[in-house]
Design a protein around this nucleic acid. Structure first.
Lengths: 168, 168
DNA sequence: ACGACAAATGAACCTCGGTTAATTACGACG
DNA sequence: CGTCGTAATTAACCGAGGTTCATTTGTCGT
C-alpha cells in the first residue's frame, strides 16, 4: 500500500504542506526529522509535535471533513518521506477491509497520543513536561533549537533556560 | 448496529466505568450528561470532557491496545445511554467494511476534537478557554458545579471566580 | 583568525493562577 | 425558624512563567 505513495525529499526548512492547504496527505517519515506547527492569529508559532524517522503524520480535519490543514509540516533536518493523499486512502478503504482496519489503527494511535498530550498540558508543570520530552525523545535536545523545544513545551525560550538552570 | 448495544440508565453520581477497568465500551449518550475525568497520581481530579445528549465517548487506549481505561465516566445528571463493548466493535469491523469505515469516522472526529483541545491548552489563557467553553456549550454553566467548570478549564475554582469577576 | 549574525543566557519587572484560609450564600431538613 | 453542610466568593501571599532588553556564547563564512 505504502508503495503506492510518492517519495518526498526535503531539505531543512522545506515544507511538506502549509497551514491552509487542502491537498493534505499522510506522511510516513523514512529518515530525518519533521516539525508540525501552526501559526496563531497573533502571529506566534506553536510546535505541535516532532516527527523523527518512523513517524506517521497527517491533519485530522483534512481526513475527516476535507477541511484545509490546521497546521504546517516542515523539515527540520534533510528528510525523506512517503506521501499518500488522504483521499486515496479513504477511497481504497471503502473496499479494502484490511486498509480500513489499518486506518483504524492509525487513527487510534493518533487519538491516544493526543489524549496523553492533553493530560500533560493539563496536569504537568513546564518543568515536568520538559523532563518527559527528554525522557521519551532523548536525542531531541541535540536535534532542534532551544526555541523549538520551548515552543513544544508551551513556554518561552527564556523560561526553558531558567528551567535548565534549576535542574543544574 | 447501535441496536445491538445495551441500554444503560444512570443516576447522578453513577459510574459507567472507572479508571483502570478493562471492559470498556463505547457509549452513545441519549439523554442527560456524562463527565469524563481522571485521577492524577497526587489524587487530584481532572475533567476531560462534558458529554451531553448526542455525544459518543470511549477510551482510545482500550480500543487500540486493549489497555485498561485511563479515565472514569460518571453521570452528572440522570442519564440514559447505549453501551457497546469495544471488542464487539473491533471484531465485527474485521469483516464489516461499513462498520470499519464508521469507526474511521468516529476516531477521526475524536482526533479532531483532541487536536482542538491541544490548541486551546497551548495557545489560550484560562480566561479565553472559559469564554470558549461558554460559547460552545452555553448551558453547561447551569448544569455543572463551578468546581467542575474550573477543573475542565484547568484552573482552581478560586481562579475561575476571579475570572468571572474580571468579566464583571 | 576574524567579524557577523543567530542562539542562548541573564536580569528586572509584572501578571496570572495556586495556596490557604476566612467569609458569605444557599440549600435541605429537623 | 434555626442549623448544618456544601458551594461560591474574597483576600493575602507566593511562585512560575511572560516581557523586555542587555549580554554572552556559538557557528558560520570568507
Amino acid at each position: 500500500m505504502v508503495k503506492n505513495g510518492r517519495k518526498i525529499v526535503l531539505e531543512s526548512g522545506d515544507h511538506a504542506f502549509m497551514q491552509g492547504d487542502s491537498d493534505s496527505k499522510v506522511y510516513f517519515v523514512k529518515s530525518g526529522l519533521l516539525k508540525a506547527y501552526y501559526i496563531r492569529s497573533d502571529g506566534k508559532e506553536h510546535i505541535k509535535s516532532f516527527l523523527p524517522e518512523g513517524s506517521i503524520i497527517g491533519s485530522m480535519v483534512a481526513l475527516v471533513d476535507g477541511d484545509p490543514c490546521t497546521f504546517s509540516l516542515v523539515a527540520s533536518e534533510p528528510t525523506t518521506a512517503i506521501a499518500l493523499p488522504y483521499k486515496v486512502l479513504a477511497d481504497v478503504a471503502q473496499s479494502d477491509i484490511g486498509l480500513a482496519n489499518a486506518l483504524v489503527g492509525f487513527l487510534g494511535t493518533y487519538g491516544k497520543r493526543k489524549e496523553q498530550r492533553e493530560y500533560q498540558l493539563l496536569s504537568l508543570s513546564a518543568e515536568d513536561r520538559f523532563a518527559l520530552l527528554i525522557e521519551t525523545m532523548p536525542d531531541i535536545a541535540d536535534r532542534v533549537s532551544q526555541a523549538d523545544l520551548a515552543s513544544y513545551i508551551g513556554i518561552t525560550p527564556q523560561a526553558l533556560s531558567r528551567i535548565k538552570r534549576r535542574l543544574k
